[in-house]
Design a protein around this nucleic acid. Structure first.
Lengths: 256, 256
DNA sequence: CGTTTTATTGAATGACGTCAATCACTGTGG
DNA sequence: CCACAGTGATTGACGTCATTCAATAAAACG
């Protein structure tokens, strides 16, 4: 099963998975079948899935940003995670009968809606792809844990710096950064719901982050001045993203 | 495959899984094989797995409490999750090559250490057990999400009340509560690292919770006065624990 | 029994939230 | 083209919740 000699793909989904293990052309083809499953479009702020619903599909973000979120009875909202292009939601959702949170579009959003059957058909025939998806899923759990550290231990300044850092690195891993710049569609209200801060405090703190020259935002584009400085300010340790091709022993061009 | 007529098992692992779907006697036998895998013992405060290590085993808590935790470079500590008897750590850990956090014993601890091969052997032959384990794993992810809501949105009072509520319900689901009472080995330092508060504030706030008559603690035993009152105080919604036998369509005594 | 860990208390400080007003930007329709 | 509405960002004043420091008390442990 020889590896492809074609240039690296620009598809964010495949690009990201290749951080785990090199895929064969067949694996990529299978990934593209997932990518091209029934396409759904949403407007910004629409819900993709609602609390209480029966989770019947695995969803793959093709374009745009989305998030998981949850309300407290009295209206307080917490964002639980972000989905950027190439991100896939929980592989085993089918096992639960009722969603305990919402998934909503942040920007105009395109997702591939994959039925249980299609998912199992495709991944059963491509164990390396399935491995890569498991890796991605474990990375997402690690990101959730890191968000816990964020909310529990980091100051407002560190939380925001950490978010900037994480998002940039995730977008870069998906091939969606140019140099030290990437898209930045998040409003300060969203940042507040992600970081557990008030919008007022986000405004003030974000200002400080900019004034310290760590980042710049113009036209919804984030530019980082010096990644190491930002990491230091955020107490950022990238190990939780597991991006160092940890699964290289599974590479398509290795002997099994 | 007839269901057992024996009384409900007292094993916390099986007891918990039965909240998802009724297992057949064979399924229970397989679960007991996992339970009886190579036993390891730890003293309180010892580490079970350390950051940076290669995760080679799935572990199942047989007795005692443990937790996941993580340090920031400057020593701040955040507890990411609790393990009580019957809890199992990430099913797919093998996929990652390096732990990004610690798992440590809170009390004297007994765990079953299950190799990848043993785990795959046993679950491959018992798909309903594997399904139940997936359910458990998804519930754990849901718990992590709820902890995010806790840290991001709830006040100190609510956080502590919520923790009390969750732990009680999880222990009860594992058959480890008597009436409205259960074991409570957590020190206030631990509660502080779980809730992202200082020990001083935990002391004061916990005092208030007790003074309001919501709970009582004596000899490391927690007693809840009125569960509904506690739930209300915590803005607790149990849906995230997915305990309502959601997988009953998979029950062993149903037609496949 | 001393020693260590855990829990409690007070006082001072600081981080962050709330309220309310203003400003900037965008898109829309007349 | 401008008026206007709606959303998002910013600012100031002030209040509150939670932290820090430091001292003490109470349990747990060998």
């Amino acid at each position: 099963m020889p590896n492809s000699v074609l240039p690296s793909p620009t598809n964010p989904f495949i690009q990201k998975l290749e951080h785990y293990a090199r895929l064969s052309d067949e694996d990529r083809g299978a990934a593209m079948r997932l990518w091209n499953e029934r396409i759904q479009k949403f407007r910004a702020k629409d819900d993709v899935v609602r609390e209480g619903e029966d989770p019947r599909f695995v969803r793959l973000v093709v374009d745009g940003w989305a998030c998981r979120y949850k309300y407290l009875e009295d209206g307080r909202r917490q964002v639980l995670g972000l989905f950027i292009p190439g991100d896939i939601c929980d592989l085993n959702v089918f096992v639960l009968r009722e969603m305990d949170h919402f998934i909503g579009a942040i920007t105009p959003l395109t997702v591939a809606q994959i039925s249980r059957e299609a998912f199992e058909d495709i991944t059963l025939a491509h164990p390396r792809l399935l491995q890569a998806l498991w890796w991605d899923s474990l990375v997402n759990m690690a990101i959730q844990r890191e968000w816990l550290v964020n909310l529990g231990q980091r100051t407002a300044f560190e939380r925001i710096a950490h978010l900037l850092c994480e998002i940039y690195l995730r977008l870069r891993a998906a091939g969606r950064a140019k140099g030290l710049s990437c898209e930045w569609p998040l409003t300060q209200t969203m940042i507040a719901d992600i970081t557990g801060l008030s919008t007022v405090h986000v405004s003030r703190t974000f200002q400080t982050v900019r004034e310290e020259g760590l980042v710049e935002i113009r036209n919804r584009v984030l530019t980082i001045r010096d990644l190491d400085d930002l990491k230091t300010a955020a107490l950022f340790n990238a190990n939780y993203l597991h991006l160092d091709r940890e699964g290289r022993h599974l590479d398509a061009n290795n002997a099994a």
